[in-house]
Design a protein around this nucleic acid. Structure first.
Length: 778
DNA sequence: CCCGTCGTTATTTTT
DNA sequence: TAACGACGGG
């Protein structure tokens, strides 16, 4: 699925004979701007890198250049990205250029935060064996901290808490009101934080927020960090949030005159994660916070043909407040992109299927194609159609392997062994399979633990606490607790014993690089590991002895699910980890910080069409791309205020710039949405395409209102449908003014639904309403 | 404690 | 439409 990019990148990085020495061949492969970015020094650097302009190559070459030409200690280089995939790719390519790059810290933001927090856990007030709570765990914890909240209230509160952390707002911040008007929110946030700190664990926001707070308040650590990191490189900088910006500032130490070199790479036109707290502002105002910033623009695009870039440029220029940049195609001429209007989504799927099939008969492999859509639900139609026509496809991102119940159960067991204060994991598995320890008993144990008040206000081990208090429980619960305690103890003891003599020599090699090193040298050794030394064997024992395997196998038989097999897959994924406490922590952290399933060999090699949301395409490229569902309300999702519309437009821009050779855009006049068939208006973005696209299909009537397509002859099968279309303002003799909000054809009768300004909603058949209903012209 | 039924609710989501 | 959560009965 994602291998296209990889394959292309690998080819790029291994061309030229300069594998060993960092010769002039490397520079020959770069254009003048790229070269300038690589050798730049002496001031902060902002690289504005357009889509497909070779930014990863610039960063990796820069790392290699610093190490081999400037004698920079690789351990003093910190390179951060947003995804694990990007980190791995960067590490791989840098190591290919210069092997010592394996000692550079090439990590995701969150993985860097985790590294920091384990190193300085005492100062940060967390357990050094912490695990990371995901969004679901946050909701559970909010519910426990503030029991009066209903489930959806807790959900909302948890969401706002993570947003608060994205903006680096603590519970006592007066600015919380800017993101949540509920006056109770600060109290909820406070209660949540207290409860979270009691467990010793962290949430995602903490991985960023806590390090920056620690660096700001602890001078000793601040000095250590500034001494350690002399070069900081940030990729995808346009998607950094306030907390990440603060962390960057803290680590860079501009105000302390640390002399650390900072280089960020980003593209303001590709900022698509505002809803997750990303701030384009970070890129627009970078030079204000890093005085003397040099700006280098990379505008030569190596990915797409000129006609595709023409579409991209013409769309994105409609956004205000950009730094301004125009992509120029290195590749030049190509096929003109095509805009296709279709009657409905079934025709849309069929159209895509036919395009792909036709190309396939001419020798085009399926994996050259990607079908892009705004929301995951849209994939279903394509899946049905492709299945029907025997077109192989891979849906990217909808697999929620680690969100499956059985997987979360196993992970909870492992997390509890790592950190026995973990309230959420304790609750999750203490009564699974049923041991007679219901919610009430669980509450009693947690209450008791809170009263015991462990070190630093943290809870004591919940397993030990349960045992201490078992005498006060019912007989059934007592037996259950005894069984559970001995189960956990057995595995904890086993792990502790095996961990006693291990050292953490690997600590200085970032995980992304570690995997490369392992793959390069230690493959056979890993395979020959004794069973007892493999974490996978340990986990397998756990799922058997805990009864989880039996429990879920029983579920499989009832519901025909694959739970046992899924658990086995989780076991398999631990095969390369050592059976030690630090091996367990590594394993858990890898999963917590990257929910995407490890690509196994056959998906990588299979020839299939990629079905993917627009968001998920960031950083990818495909020879042929179809962007679907260009309808108002679907994409852009709602006609919202300017800022949000601009973000949708950037998303469109990202989609367009994924295409290398061919681009298709589709729009339907009708779509089934939430069980209803709705008439759709074309996306407002389509009116911005001008003559950069070739148009196929009959343009829908409302399209006459958009500039750029006025030349098309109007056709319609029914004048009523043309006249009484969705969005039209009307006046009714009895009910007053209103707007057509929906239209349906039922038994040959065209029926419209009108929302009146007086609040009422009525259906009419226009053919019988000539007297009382009229269209208002404005 | 488990199972059925009814009602509600639908984005995007690197970590 | 469909999928999931809340609730009540066995």
């Amino acid at each position: 699925m994602l291998h296209q990019t990889e394959r292309a990148e690998i080819v790029m990085s291994s061309d030229g004979p300069a594998e060993k020495s960092f010769g002039s061949d490397y520079f020959a492969a770069l254009n003048p701007e790229q070269r300038a970015a690589v050798v730049h020094e002496g001031s902060p650097l902002l690289i504005l890198a357009g889509a497909g302009s070779g930014k990863t190559r610039v960063i990796t070459t820069k790392i290699a250049y610093l190490i081999s030409q400037k004698n920079v200690d690789p351990r003093s280089i910190l390179a951060v990205t947003f995804t694990k995939k990007a980190a791995e790719e960067m590490a791989e390519r840098a190591v290919n250029l210069v092997p010592e790059a394996a000692f550079a810290q090439i990590r995701t933001f969150h993985s860097f935060g985790a590294w920091f927090l384990r190193k300085y856990s005492d100062e940060a007030g967390v357990d050094s064996n912490f695990t990371v709570y995901d969004d679901d765990d946050m909701v559970t914890l909010v519910s426990k901290a503030v029991p009066s909240l209903a489930k959806n209230q807790a959900k909302h509160a948890a969401h706002v808490i993570s947003l608060a952390k994205d903006y680096c707002l603590t519970p006592d911040s007066s600015r919380l009101s800017e993101i949540e008007s509920d006056p109770d929110f600060p109290a909820i946030y406070t209660a949540y934080e207290k409860r979270l700190r009691q467990t010793g664990n962290v949430d995602f926001g903490d991985l960023i927020q806590l390090p920056s707070l620690v660096i700001a308040s602890d001078e000793r650590i601040r000095r250590q960090i500034h001494y350690r990191f002399r070069v900081i490189l940030v990729d995808e900088y346009q998607d950094s949030n306030v907390a990440q910006f603060k962390l960057l500032q803290a680590v860079a130490g501009v105000e302390d005159n640390s002399g650390t070199y900072v280089c960020v790479v980003g593209d303001d036109d590709q900022s698509i994660y505002k809803f997750r707290g990303a701030e384009v502002k970070n890129i627009l105002t970078f030079k204000d916070f890093f005085p003397g910033t040099t700006i280098i623009r990379l505008e030569q695009n190596y990915r797409s043909t000129a006609p595709i870039l023409a579409v991209a440029n013409t769309v994105v220029k409609n956004n205000q407040g950009r730094l301004g940049k125009k992509l120029v195609s290195v590749r030049g001429k190509g096929k003109q992109p095509v805009m296709v209007f279709l009657p409905n989504q079934d025709d849309e799927s069929a159209f895509c299927a036919e395009l792909i099939t036709k190309a396939h008969t001419k020798g085009c492999p399926y994996n050259e194609w990607a079908v892009l859509y705004r929301m995951n639900a849209q994939s279903l139609g394509f899946e049905t159609e492709f299945l029907h026509r025997n077109i192989p496809y891979t849906v990217v991102g909808s697999l929620k392997f680690y969100e499956r119940e059985e997987i979360k159960d196993v992970l909870a067991f492992l997390s509890l062994i790592a950190n026995p204060r973990d309230e959420i994991s304790f609750r999750r598995i203490v009564n699974k399979p049923a041991r007679g320890i219901g919610a009430k008993t669980q509450d009693r144990i947690i209450d008791a633990a809170q009263h015991e008040n462990g070190r630093d206000g943290r809870l004591p081990s919940l397993v030990e606490c349960a045992q201490r208090h078992s005498s006060s429980l019912s007989k059934k619960a007592r037996e259950g607790v005894a069984g559970f305690v001995s189960l956990v103890d057995e595995f904890s003891a086993f792990l502790a014993e095996r961990s006693a003599d291990t050292t953490s020599a690997d600590e200085e090699v970032a995980p992304a690089a570690r995997e490369i090193l392992q793959a390069a040298q230690a493959e056979p050794a890993a395979g020959q590991k004794a069973d007892e030394e493999k974490l996978s064997v340990f986990i397998k024992k756990i799922i058997v002895k805990s009864g989880l395997l039996e429990y879920h196998t029983a579920q499989d038989e009832i519901a025909g699910t694959q739970r046992a097999a899924n658990m086995q897959e989780l076991v398999n994924s631990a095969v390369l980890y050592p059976c030690t406490l630090s091996g367990l922590l590594d394993f858990l952290e890898r999963i917590e910080l990257d929910h995407t399933l490890e690509e196994n060999g056959n998906t990588k090699n299979s020839d299939s069409v990629t079905l993917i949301t627009l968001h998920n395409t960031k950083g990818l490229e495909f020879p042929r791309v179809i962007i679907t569902g260009l309808e108002s309300g679907v994409f852009p999702r709602q006609d919202k205020t300017g800022g949000e519309l601009e973000e949708e437009r950037r998303l469109f821009y990202v989609g367009i710039t994924r295409a290398q050779n061919q681009l298709y855009i589709t729009s339907c006049r009708e779509r089934r949405l939430y069980g209803r068939t709705e008439h759709m208006l074309p996306s407002p973005f389509l009116s911005e395409l001008g003559d950069t696209v070739k148009i196929l299909g009959r343009k829908p009537s409302p399209f006459r209102d958009y500039s750029g397509f006025n030349d098309s002859p109007q056709q319609s099968d029914d004048p009523l449908v043309q006249k009484w279309c969705r969005g039209t303002r009307i006046y009714h003799d009895d009910f007053g003014y209103g707007q057509i909000v929906n239209t349906v054809t039922k038994d040959d009768n065209y029926v419209i639904t009108v929302q009146f300004e007086n609040g009422g909603r009525k259906c009419f058949m226009p053919r019988y309403q000539a007297g009382t209903l009229m269209i208002v012209k404005d």
